[in-house]
Design a binder for these strands. Sequence first.
DNA 1: GCGTGTGAACCTCTTCACAGCG
DNA 2: CGCTGTGAAGAGGTTCACACGC
Lengths: 212, 212
Amino acid sequence: MIAVKVSEKSIRRLSHYARCLRLAKKRGESVITSRQMAANCGISSAAVRRDLSIYGEFGKQGSGYNVDDLLINIENILGTTDPPSVIIVGAGSIGCALMTSGLAGTGGYNYSAIFDNDSAKIGKECNGRVIRPVEKIHEILQKEKEVIAVIAVTGGSGQAALDMLVAAGCKAILSFTLEPLKAPEDVEIKYVEVSTELDVLTHSMRKKERVY
Amino acid sequence: MIAVKVSEKSIRRLSHYARCLRLAKKRGESVITSRQMAANCGISSAAVRRDLSIYGEFGKQGSGYNVDDLLINIENILGTTDPPSVIIVGAGSIGCALMTSGLAGTGGYNYSAIFDNDSAKIGKECNGRVIRPVEKIHEILQKEKEVIAVIAVTGGSGQAALDMLVAAGCKAILSFTLEPLKAPEDVEIKYVEVSTELDVLTHSMRKKERVY
DNA sequence: GCGTGTGAACCTCTTCACAGCG
DNA sequence: CGCTGTGAAGAGGTTCACACGC
């Protein structure tokens, strides 16, 4: 029982291992090796063993790791054994699409509510969930302290949405906005940046001939 | 004119600088300092200068960088001066939502076509674009050699979509699928992993009390 | 004085290779 | 013999701090 400093890269990989283990479990496998996980995640087996050994000795020499046990351990490390609920702010095309496609296949997350500030949308439904006014966000956070919010608003209103979430006590945000958002230190923000991914892909596709 | 090895991290940051420069341009600013860019992107000014100095000496001591010139240079480095067109495979909720929300505010990308394999959807429209059968993908890649494909299919058909794209000659793919995809070496794949982002956020929200 | 460009120190993460256990 | 866990070496990226030019 020792507190461990962790890098985000390592956490990201643990998330991948967890996904890989859930698939193995679904296939009925009870044991898995670092090499199998590595192949599945596209990294080296040494990296897998290193990642896992930081948190404990989960494996058995000669055979590998017990799928169920390792999954439980990783979910415990991630804190996802009992995942927080996820709310969506912005019932535009992206927000509703996320709500519609759901979060099946992830570690048990699901979308519990969707909000918008457009009175024309409020009261309508999105995949069976009523779109609520943004002013009601704090009600959710009163009931559940730990909630992840997905910001899927359009135009330049990302910061306004974030301010509202922060005021309601939300500490974890995933934003689909283009603009970088400002928030207090203790609020964690992650971004889904399609635009940057496209730039990276364009560069990799064209770099061969490229000279500076 | 020297070829330079580049890290993806650096390329990602260049993409952020480009976005920051476009905003500065829109605000009518003609000069910008490394400190301003750094503040906007949430990193140190030394990191900004280091990134830029790899590719050349774009700045003027004492004043900073010319916004227009630097943007042109960065777009040249990224290869995004004349961005490739982007197609979407999968006209489900996510695919259509992407098509609907478009790519305004990015470096000039736009979605040129959308495909699906469901005959019930083919022929219908999605934000003014007719949904075409996946068998027609190769026609796009015959016309334009360089195309980025976004995979937004549901269920387990991500690999099938990718195989079709690879067969048509596509070399750059952005996937929203959960499963890791297999492709030849020369095909670059990036993933948007909402599930992993949620795990990272959960961990950061709960790690304070967490001990291993 | 101000801000860039950069050597050098620093730090973090990755890979290698092997001891040790089942 | 197979696979884990890990010291040691290596690679890559970041930060510091300062010389130089405007």
